[in-house]
Every structure is written in C-alpha cells, then in structure tokens.
Simulated scan of single mutants.
Amino acid sequence: MNTKQKKLTKKVVQHVLLSLFTLIMLYPLLWMVGSSFKESSEVFVKAYQLFPDEWKFSNYSEGWRGFAGISFSTFYKNTFIIVILATVGSILSSTVIAYGFARINFRFKKMWFAIMMGTMMLPFEMTMIPQYVMFNYFGWVDTYLPLVLPTFFGVPFFIFLILQFMRTIPKELDQAARIDGCNTVSIFTRIIVPLVVPAMMTSAIFSFYWRWDDFMAPLLYLQTPTKYPVSLALKLFSDPEAVTNWGAMFAMTTLSLLPIMIIFFIFQRYIVDGISTSGLKG
C-alpha cells in the first residue's frame, strides 16, 4: 500500500468514526423528535423504535393547547420576556464593568477584580437561600424581577470574556481619541463598543441559552402558572397522579429547542470570534 492509499484509508476511517460518534451524540435528540409523533402508550413500550409506525401529528396541536386553559403561546411569551430583558441587562452592564476594569484606574482595582472572579466559583446552591430570603423581603417573589434585575449589575463570566477582548485593543486608540476631544464615555461608545461586538454577541448567545434553559430560578420565584416560562410548563406535563401525555410533552420539548437552534446557526460565527479574542483585524 503506497502513501496515497494510506492517506485515503486514514481519511475514510476518520470519517466513519466521526459519523458514528455524531450519530451516537444525536441519537437522544432523534429519539425525542420521533417520540413526539408517537402515541403516549408507545413512547416507552417501543422505546427501542426510533420512529413510530403511525405518525401522530396531533401531538403538536394537543401540546400547544397546554393545560388549565393556558396555551403554550403564553409560556413562550413569558420566556421571551425573561430572556430578552435578562440578556440585554447582562450584556450592557457587563460591557460597562469590563470597560472600567480594562481602561479606568481606581483604588483597589485588583481587589475588586479578584472578588468578582471569586463569585464565579460560588455554586448556585450556596447563594440560593440568601437570595430567596432577600428577594422575598423585597416583595419580588412571583414576579420577574429576581430573574431579570440582577443581570443589570453584571455577570462575572461575561465581564471576564469582554474584558479579555478589550485588552487586545491598543490603548493608543484611546489616546488618539482624547487628542481629538473625546472623553471617557465617548471613547467607550465610539471606539471600544464597536470593536468588542464579537465578544458582546458571544455573551448574548450564552445568556440566551442559559436563560432559556433555566428551570431552578423560575421554580423558586414564580408561583402563578400564567407567569411560567416554557421550562416550567414542560415539567407540568408530567403528572405522577394522572396519565401523562408523553407525546404532547415531547412535541413541545422539540419546539422549545427551535429558538436555541435558530440563534446558534445565525450567530455561530460570533462565538468563534468572541472566544478567540483575536483582537483587531486589518
């Protein structure tokens, strides 16, 4: 076997292995989509069967009707309100804070930065009870304020991500802008923000994912079903005291993935640009 044949064989083996690995990773997703078209009684009885013998498209209409007179259009509306407000708040505040750490000198700057980074290591379970007690004291329980308002004070991971990107921007641009008469705010809005758009978009995508999938925080703070997001509404499909409509639940679960997939495929190039922190491009 010559060198050319060896390279060809190696590529074929690599593609076969990658295809098998991809199929293994996608199998749970394919099983869920297939189950969304099955009768509820067949979902687990014929779990080995990827797709149903008879396709039940009515699962989607049944699922969309929701329960207790609340349709999934209400749950989707609630989710978009939470996600959009939280994403806008986290990106705007994190960008401003990152600019302060990157370009402004102030007392105890390193200490505050270390404290900010240290908060990234705190698990949610550690802050869950103190936060609930505080928000309950404020009277914010059963409102969207605990889910949205804290994001307007910065998200440590996004601050760090945007800060790392800002550090690749030459400070000579700031000095040139000051010579032209720009102040700190003008430099931030006219020079820095346009250059850190990839990092901001990456943070926005991550924020959208995390808020869309968030289950624990809405479970803690929301008590009225008409205010529930999609993540909580899907859980209500499963009732241990009654017959669960598994087909409708999987149908709504499949639909809940569409916004995330659309966002990813539209803005995926920003993820690479933002994480790589490649800085200025000529």
Rank of each mutant, 00 (worst) to 15 (best):
F44I: 04
S73G: 05
R107P: 00
I81M: 12
F75Y: 15
K38Y: 03
V45M: 13
V43Q: 02
N78H: 10
G66D: 05
I91L: 09
A114S: 13
T127R: 12
S94D: 06
R103N: 09
F67G: 12
A98T: 01
T127M: 11
N59T: 09
A86I: 08
T119S: 13
F75R: 11
W112Y: 15
P123S: 07
F108P: 00
E62G: 10
I81R: 12
M126L: 14
F51R: 05
S94R: 05
S61I: 12
E42L: 14
M126N: 08
S58E: 15
I129K: 02
G63S: 03
F67Y: 15
Q49P: 03
P130V: 06
V88K: 02
T74A: 13
K110Y: 09
W55T: 10
L85H: 08
S71Q: 05
N59Q: 09
I91H: 01
I91A: 04
F44L: 11
Y76H: 01
F101K: 10
F67M: 15
M126P: 00
M120I: 14
V141Q: 12
W55P: 10
V83R: 06
F72D: 06
V45I: 15
K109L: 07
F57P: 12
G139H: 10
Y137C: 00
Y48I: 11
G66L: 04
W64M: 03
T87V: 13
A114I: 11
F80C: 05
I97V: 12
W112R: 00
K56W: 01
V88I: 15
M121S: 09
A47G: 15
R103L: 06
I70E: 12
E39S: 14
G118L: 07
F37C: 04
E62T: 13
T74M: 08
S90M: 13
I91V: 14
G63F: 05
S93H: 02
F67K: 15
S61M: 07
F101E: 01
E42H: 13
M128E: 02
N105L: 01
V83F: 03
M116H: 05
G63E: 10
S58I: 12
M134C: 01
F106D: 01
A102R: 06
Y137T: 14
M128Y: 03
Y60T: 06
F75A: 09
V43W: 10
N59E: 02
F113L: 07
F44E: 04
S35I: 08
F108V: 03
G139T: 08
V96F: 14
F37R: 07
F113E: 05
A98R: 06
A86Q: 13
Y76I: 13
N59F: 06
A86T: 12
V141N: 11
N78E: 10
V83T: 14
I84Y: 03
Y60L: 03
I104A: 00
N136T: 11
P130G: 09
V141F: 09
T119A: 08
A47D: 08
G118E: 09
W55N: 10
G69V: 06
G100V: 04
N136R: 15
Y60G: 01
G63C: 09
L85G: 04
F124S: 03
M134D: 07
Y132G: 06
W112F: 15
Y99P: 03
E62S: 13
Y48K: 10
L85P: 08
A47S: 13
L85E: 05
K109V: 06
M116F: 12
N105G: 03
W140H: 08
